[in-house]
């Protein structure tokens, strides 16, 4: 089917991952940030580079980072989920109740926690993907609902009766120094990288995030995919609940209060576009490390957590705003140099 008479030339097929692309990427910025955190942390506190301190601090942010992995996928597909911390609270409570009243062992408790999380996620998924309600208000609603159920059942009490085999999960270390939650986070990060960037599912995910209707017309089961991602995110919150509950050895309705903001900060700082379609899991993992070690550096300097959130907020806005300001500034600079007629 030739219309013009020039010999049709082949389109070049460059490799999909190029060095140039990586150099210009978000990841590089994040690695720079991470280096700055390490340099600053080392300069401000002699204990920062202590390997035990470093590794120990991973236990705290790994729970949040696990939820960030799932949330990243939800945001890439143009949805949003701000109910993860509440799902965590409800999963934690259900495990607590199961332990208190049924006296279950560690394995069934973990399974119950995961199942509760997945179930909560499926509720979100049903409301958003099946009924077509907007994700932001649905998850604002379930954020209240899930934590509210925990609060309603437990009041201002707490459950601290967990079997030792269960609380051991929060105190186990690989090679005696790497917290189990961090190990699981790193392993799952690899799984998520593969899932997102190297499978058909991942391809569908980006197609959906860039153009939901176009993806549907291309044969992607868009609603099923969105439902699955919300469920997966719930499952990740359930997993985070297992680690957090085990680490604390108890559960209260206000457990993980406000963590959803940290989760979303990690995802956005990691370069996932809030309008969907763009982002990498490696970026999110790096962002988790940046925030996690920043927290360590700040804590070692006896700065209270209440001030840490100022840094997190500045990091979130700055990481998005600075490139935009840079672009605007470059444009102005060009204008000044070009004489106008």
């Amino acid at each position: 089917m030739s219309v013009s008479h020039e010999a049709p030339a082949d389109l070049p097929a460059p490799p999909t991952l190029s060095v140039g692309k990586i150099l210009r990427s978000r990841e590089l910025v994040l690695i720079g940030l991470l280096a700055m955190v390490f340099i600053g942390g080392n300069a401000s506190s002699p204990w920062f580079l202590d390997i035990y301190n470093l590794l120990d601090s991973t236990a705290i942010f790994s729970e949040i980072a696990l939820m960030a992995l799932g949330t990243a996928l939800v945001i890439i597909t143009r949805d949003i989920d701000i109910s993860m911390a509440s799902i965590l609270a409800l999963s934690s409570l259900v495990m607590g109740l199961a332990s208190q009243h049924l006296g279950l062992g560690a394995v069934p408790l973990v399974l119950i926690g995961l199942a509760t999380g997945a179930l909560c996620g499926a509720v979100n998924g049903t409301l958003v993907a099946r009924l077509g309600m907007p994700a932001i208000v649905v998850t604002i609603g379930t954020m209240s609902l899930f934590r509210g159920i925990a609060a309603g059942i437990l009041g201002d009490g707490k459950i601290a009766e967990f079997p030792t085999a269960f609380t051991a999960i929060g105190q186990s270390y690989l090679f005696g120094m790497i917290p189990l939650s961090f190990v699981v986070f790193i392993l799952l990060s690899v799984v998520f990288v593969v899932l997102t960037h190297f499978t058909v599912l991942g391809r569908n995910l980006f197609a959906l995030g860039n153009n939901p209707e176009g993806a549907r017309y291309s044969g992607v089961r868009t609603n099923r995919l969105r439902f699955l991602l919300f469920t997966l995110n719930g499952l990740m919150a359930g997993l985070a609940a297992v680690f957090l509950t085990a680490r604390l050895g108890s559960t209260r309705p206000d457990i993980a209060m406000g963590l959803e903001m940290e989760v979303i900060t990690m995802v956005v700082l990691g370069g996932v576009s809030i309008s969907g379609g763009k982002g990498t899991i490696t970026g999110v993992v790096l962002a988790a490390l940046v925030i996690g070690f920043l927290r360590l550096a700040v804590t070692l300097n006896n700065v209270p957590g209440n001030i840490l959130i100022v840094f997190t907020g500045l990091l979130l806005i700055g990481s998005v705003a600075l490139p935009i300001i840079g672009e605007k500034y470059a444009y102005l600079f060009k204008l000044m140099r070009r004489p106008r007629n």
Binding site: G141, S144, L145, R147, G148, A151, G152, L154
Partner: peptide, 8 residues
């Protein structure tokens, strides 16, 4: 304590 669940 049920206030939050209800509002959700």
């Amino acid at each position: 304590f049920w206030q939050q669940a209800l509002s959700g």
